[in-house]
């Protein structure tokens, strides 16, 4: 049970270096499994195992063409990771925007003190 949970989402699926390598290759376009085996330099059963995990979380899709199975990347499950980083960044952006306004006021106050008071 615990094992299933570790691969149940995109976060954990991409935590494994080999799986990231596979995705890196697929960024370049659709590939048959032989290609992935050649590029990664690991045995086909390992590659297939990783592809299975990536398919489970929807990061990789597969289709048959003739005798070949072609694998391609689907980036959308990575969106929560992107959102997670962006949310935190957004919170600080809002804070700093409020700070911008305050700093404008402080600058004017200082200018007032120096000059025409």
């Amino acid at each position: 049970m615990a094992r299933a949970a570790t691969t149940a989402d995109a976060f954990n699926a991409v935590a494994e270096p080999r799986r990231r390598q596979i995705l890196d290759v697929l960024v370049g376009g659709e590939r048959p499994v032989n290609d992935l085996v050649a590029r990664l330099g690991i045995a086909q059963p390992q590659v297939s195992k990783h592809l299975r995990v990536l398919r489970e979380v929807g990061l990789v899709e597969v289709r048959d063409e003739g005798r070949q199975r072609l694998y391609r990347l689907n980036g959308s499950p990575l969106k929560p990771i992107h959102d997670w980083v962006k949310n935190y960044e957004q919170a600080w952006n809002e804070r700093f925007d409020a700070l911008d306004e305050l700093l404008e006021e402080l600058k004017r106050e200082e200018e007032g003190d120096d000059g025409d008071q």
């Binding site: 954990n12 935590a15 494994e16 990231r20 990771i81 992107h82 997670w84 980083v85 949310n87």
Partner: peptide, 20 residues
Amino acid sequence: MESGMEGGMQDAYDLLEEVA
């Protein structure tokens, strides 16, 4: 960062940039 999730976030983020 308000998430209980674990895993290779930086790598995931780098990868995401590439994908994007």
